[in-house]
Design a protein around this nucleic acid. Structure first.
Lengths: 230, 230
DNA sequence: TAGATTGTTAATCGATTAACAATC
DNA sequence: TAGATTGTTAATCGATTAACAATC
């Protein structure tokens, strides 16, 4: 069967469909599961098995992959190593994405350390936090692992020098908007925002909120709901 | 106009509709915006203004609130203090939800500190992390702020004593499933999982994944996508 | 071949948006 | 009254699921 979508993707950028958020997120999870399976020495996997380990339906697995081509064999399933390579290609893990983090508090520090451990080739992310920023003179100039903490007032300059395209905000809510503005001045194209604040950014800048208190509050609501509502 | 949904909610638990995830999440954000507006001394707000500050559409604001009643005045908007009270009631912020956190690494420690600052009455969450757990003898017995670090082997016992209903997992991926099982043994009803792993739990236990590397990887994909695809 | 599993379509489900009568 | 804004409905949009022919 012809791979029409991939063909369009390769030949005609103007009409290439934007892959849905939900699909991209699941692809990341599939790759993780496949990496684990490969460690265990498995060679092939069915959509049903992959789905179970990823916590989704087998129809989702097949449909998600079908956006990019035909990677399976009917009656057999997917070759694990082959599919890993395809997913690494699809997710473009071959190229490093440089990031900076603003706000070297306990959450920021944790993220820097965590990111260091997760980096390729051993880990599963191509994002590298290359610098951190803070406004506390005590912290400026220190290192978190290998990552230097700079003065926030140098932010646009350093971001530009590093050519960082991703900014991570772990400052208090009051400082989040100003931080976002500075990051964009420095040239970042996407922001991962951990502050409980709504950011106002130009439409070409992509924002992803990772609101930890919101997640807790959401679960708390569900608990209260089940408790009271029966 | 009759408030049929609220009536059903109050009188007949069996048919009360489950409010969608997306709605509950937005309600939490609305409340946050309203708290900020109240600080600024504002008295009323329109759905359009609230929507802008929350980063959603005004139709969403009105529709989300309509699930619970009629809180606005046509031609005027919503009374800020009144709506805050309604939302606090709807989100059941009057009762504390006790939580425990497993994995007192840098992320776990950050979350405990963060949670302490965010608690009501000054903050915006009714979740209280009442205990932490780790398997590192160096950490066991120490305090993170006011929160004691226990031995993981005491987990089910302590969770039961505290009557904690929410578990937060910040252990490495390899230990996530075992941690989840222990938490459920201790009686938690919901899990917030920061480990990059899929948890297998009984259907009555609610799991929310907060996968920080996934968020980063997702944005990295979008960046590469824009860069290569034009 | 027979059993298994993919790739794909159509049906279902749910969430968002647009529009406007109701009404302050 | 006139302008503004809600509450609500219908239309749109998109995502998930079920089902099955294709085929290994």
């Amino acid at each position: 069967m012809m791979d029409v979508k991939a063909l369009i993707g390769g030949v005609c950028h103007l009409t290439r469909p934007k892959i849905a958020d939900s699909v991209v997120r699941r692809l990341v999870i599939y790759l993780r599961v496949l990496d684990k399976l490969a460690e265990g020495g498995r060679e092939t996997v069915s959509s049903a098995q992959l789905a179970e380990q990823a916590g989704v339906s087998s129809a989702s697995v097949r449909k998600d992959l079908a956006w990019f081509g035909e990677f399976g064999t009917r009656g057999v399933g997917y070759d694990i190593d082959g599919l890993r390579q395809e997913l690494r290609r699809i997710l473009k893990l071959g190229h490093e994405v440089r990031a900076v983090l603003v706000g070297a508090g306990s959450l920021g520090t944790a993220l820097v350390r965590y990111n260091t451990r997760q980096q390729l080739p051993h880990g599963s992310t191509n994002v590298r936090i290359a610098a951190a920023f803070d406004n506390d003179q005590e912290k400026i100039g220190t290192l978190i692992g290998q990552v230097r903490v700079y003065d926030v007032s140098d932010l646009p300059t350093v971001v530009r020098q590093l050519e960082a395209r991703l900014g991570i905000i772990t400052v208090p809510a009051e400082a989040a908007q100003q931080t976002a503005t500075r990051l964009i001045q420095g040239g970042v194209r996407a922001i991962l925002n951990f502050a409980p604040a709504t950011l106002n950014v130009p439409p070409e800048v992509q924002v992803q909120n990772a609101d930890l208190t919101l997640e807790m509050q959401y679960l708390a609501y569900r608990l209260q709901d089940e408790h009271i509502g029966g």
